[in-house]
Amino acid sequence: MLCASHAVYLVLRERRLTIDRLPGSMNRMDKHTFRLASFGVRVGTRLEGKIAREKLLTALETLSEPGRLAISLDGIEVLSGSFADEAVALSYARLITGEYGDRYMIIRSPVLEITEDLSSKLERRRMAMLCSSNDGWDVLGLLGTQMKETLALVIDRRETTAKELASLLGIRHNACLRRVGRLAELRLIRREEVGLAGPHHSYRFFSILNP
């Protein structure tokens, strides 16, 4: 026999879980922080990076979908390129293959200077990653000006459509679809199918920085 309060709790929990898994509820995205400083304040070698990567990917995997893992550089004094590549860039490379489903990663750093070597590694791998800092946000790695402009609009609006973006950017709908499609492939924004618009799928696009 369940007591009344426990039964209510279970119903509420079930409802909450259901709500959490509802598509389109970006504000209910499962959000966690992974602190890189737990591996030392000055990191480090590729060997240390490999150990960090295993833990980082485990943390990513345990997120509910949709989910976002913020890799915090708070407390880090040195982030070497070798460590950054092994721990972060290689994890991100796996994320953008779709291996981890509807999950995302961003960097959170008090200052941008510390991310220089990570940015260089992402660039070499032709990838880009969002970084939020005390000064706002930036893109680490490689991303063209037009793509960055589109990304900025998605972040600014938090949730939008290709039609709205095309109008704001003053470009054709198809061109806009290509841009947001690429941004979604790079895991810089979240794309969600909301139905059909004629013969095509219709999508909404969400910022992963401020869901």
Partner: peptide
């Protein structure tokens, strides 16, 4: 300065690990 210390440590980390790698 912390900035210079950290920059030098980063240089050392990369140069030192090149040897075993």
């Amino acid at each position: 300065t912390n900035e210079s210390r950290n920059a030098l440590v980063k240089v050392m980390l990369e140069l030192f690990q090149n040897i075993p790698q």
